[in-house]
Simulated assay, not measured.
Amino acid sequence: MSRKPGPVETSRREILAAGAGALALIIARPARATPESMAAAIKAFVGGADVREGRVILEIPPLVENGNSVPLTVKVDSPMTAQDYVKRIAIFNERNPQPNVALFYLNPRAGHALVSTRIRLGDSQNIVAIAQLSDGTFWSDKAELIVTLPACVES
């Protein structure tokens, strides 16, 4: 039997089989952020500007029993007026699959420079919060925490 020239037809079974193989490769090699990749992500966020410690308070438990849902709050000392306010707050980590955890945009109408969320943590690590103010300065705080039961664990 000869095949007619023309478009190549792929069966659904062939597509699914190819996709399963690609998925197995992805699962076998999960990406991991490193302290270096976190530093690069921070550098990209601040654009080479100096980051000062202070004005930012990162609240996160120092000991986390379950990394699947870790509460995190970032407060920034700012009057939140039209002349002096927080523009962005970014959160970074050094051992999850990606170094960027979250990015929040604020403006003077927010009233308070405060964000709160829950994050997943795959291991014990350092977390860094950086706030960009309307005058272009960057301020930060960091926390080291221990995770006893990591999220993102493959079984």
Rank of each mutant, 00 (worst) to 15 (best):
A39H: 10
A40G: 06
I42L: 14
I42E: 15
D50P: 00
R52V: 11
E53H: 11
V56M: 10
V56E: 11
L58D: 11
L58T: 13
P62K: 10
V64D: 02
V64M: 03
V64Y: 03
N68G: 05
T73V: 10
T73S: 13
D77L: 15
A82N: 09
A82C: 00
A82L: 06
Q83D: 14
Y85I: 03
A90E: 14
I91R: 08
N93K: 03
N93P: 01
N93C: 12
N93L: 02
R95L: 08
N96L: 06
P97K: 07
L103W: 02
F104A: 11
F104R: 07
F104I: 04
Y105C: 00
N107G: 14
R109C: 00
G111V: 10
H112Q: 15
H112R: 15
L114P: 00
L114Y: 06
L114A: 02
S116M: 04
T117L: 12
R118A: 03
R118E: 10
I119S: 01
R120G: 07
R120P: 00
L121M: 13
G122L: 02
S124E: 01
S124D: 01
S124I: 01
N126M: 13
V128N: 08
A129Y: 08
D135N: 14
G136K: 04
T137H: 11
F138M: 07
W139A: 05
W139M: 04
D141Y: 12
E144L: 07
P150N: 01
A151D: 09
A151Q: 02
A151V: 03
E154P: 02
S155G: 12
S155F: 06
S155M: 04
